[in-house]
Computed example of a mutant assay.
Amino acid sequence: MIRLYASELSGNAHKVRMALAFLGLDWDERATDAAARRTDAFRALNPMAQIPVYVEGDFILRDSQAILAYLAARHRPGEWDGRTPQERGAIMVWLSHAANEIFNGPALLRAERLFGWSVDRERAAAVAMRILPVVEAHLAGRDWLVGGRLTIADLAASPYLALIGDAGLDLDDWPAIRDWTRRIAALPDFPAMPGWPAEGGE
């Protein structure tokens, strides 16, 4: 049985949750709060004391982007992680954006508002305003980020963009991003996420 150490409101955890649900895999989700992440038992799984952590038998993997890459290679090779070198490179660009600009912009603004994190709000807002127009322009006239289909690029990049309302931003200001995140939420087996707007409503 797959174990996923996560928390309900973690966008990074939700990336993995979506992948598992769309793959039709069963998993045992272990709610892991900040106190649990400081324990020796958890640090043995992830010395960085972060979620998500994916455990499958003796195999342990941390970092949401890495977990997505593993699940794609194991269960949807080519379809989810790129059919050509060009697609693979393009997907990696979006995994990088997810870990860098999207996290250091919209995700940090959300973490400050929801969880009381101490962040450089001015810098996070500036990063958000750099990456949001890039994503919006890329999605104009496209349904998906790469290859005309769902890939791990979409799974990696979407949660903290779908949740920008929690960051004090208005998703309706970014209609291509809004429609893309609603397309993802409309997919069969999409696992609900608090704050992620569905088609036709907030």
Rank of each mutant, 00 (worst) to 15 (best):
G89D: 13
L45M: 03
R76I: 02
R76P: 01
V93K: 13
R83S: 12
L108D: 02
V135E: 10
H138V: 05
A124F: 08
D28S: 13
S64A: 15
D58M: 01
D40H: 10
W117M: 13
P77N: 06
R123T: 14
W80R: 10
I131R: 04
A124Y: 06
A126C: 00
G89L: 14
A36C: 05
A34C: 00
R38K: 13
A72H: 05
A126H: 03
A72W: 05
A73T: 07
E56L: 07
S64I: 05
V55I: 06
A35S: 08
R62N: 14
P85W: 06
P77W: 06
A140D: 14
D40I: 12
A137Y: 00
D81F: 11
F115H: 10
F59P: 01
A140I: 03
Q65E: 11
E136N: 03
G57R: 04
E112A: 15
N46H: 07
S64H: 10
G57D: 09
G89S: 14
E87Q: 14
T84D: 00
A140Y: 02
V127Y: 03
V55D: 08
V53F: 06
I51F: 09
Q65D: 14
F42T: 01
I67W: 11
V119I: 15
R76V: 02
M129T: 08
G105H: 05
R83N: 10
P106H: 05
H75G: 01
N46A: 05
M48W: 02
I67N: 12
L61R: 11
I60F: 00
A66V: 09
V135R: 10
G116Q: 07
A125F: 11
R38E: 13
A36M: 13
A36S: 09
P52A: 05
E56Y: 03
H97K: 09
A34I: 02
A72L: 06
G82C: 11
V135S: 08
G57S: 05
L139Y: 04
V55G: 07
R83Y: 05
L71A: 04
D33A: 04
T32Q: 09
A111R: 13
L108I: 02
A44E: 11
L114V: 02
L109H: 03
D58R: 08
L45G: 02
A128D: 03
A90Y: 02
I91S: 12
I60H: 00
R110F: 00
R130N: 02
E87S: 12
A128S: 15
A99N: 11
R110M: 00
V135W: 07
V134F: 12
F103S: 10
R37G: 10
Q50C: 03
M92Y: 09
E29G: 02
E136W: 01
D58F: 00
Y70S: 01
S96T: 13
I102T: 13
A44I: 03
R37K: 15
M129I: 00
S118D: 15
L71E: 04
R43E: 07
W94M: 05
I131K: 04
E79P: 03
R43L: 14
I51E: 09
A49R: 09
V55P: 08
L139H: 03
A128M: 07
D143G: 10
R113I: 08
F59Y: 12
L95A: 01
A73S: 12
A69D: 11
A66D: 13
V55K: 12
A137W: 00
N104R: 13
E122L: 13
D28Q: 15
L108E: 12
P77V: 06
L114F: 00
P52Q: 11
L71G: 04
D143I: 09
F103M: 09
V53C: 11
A111K: 07
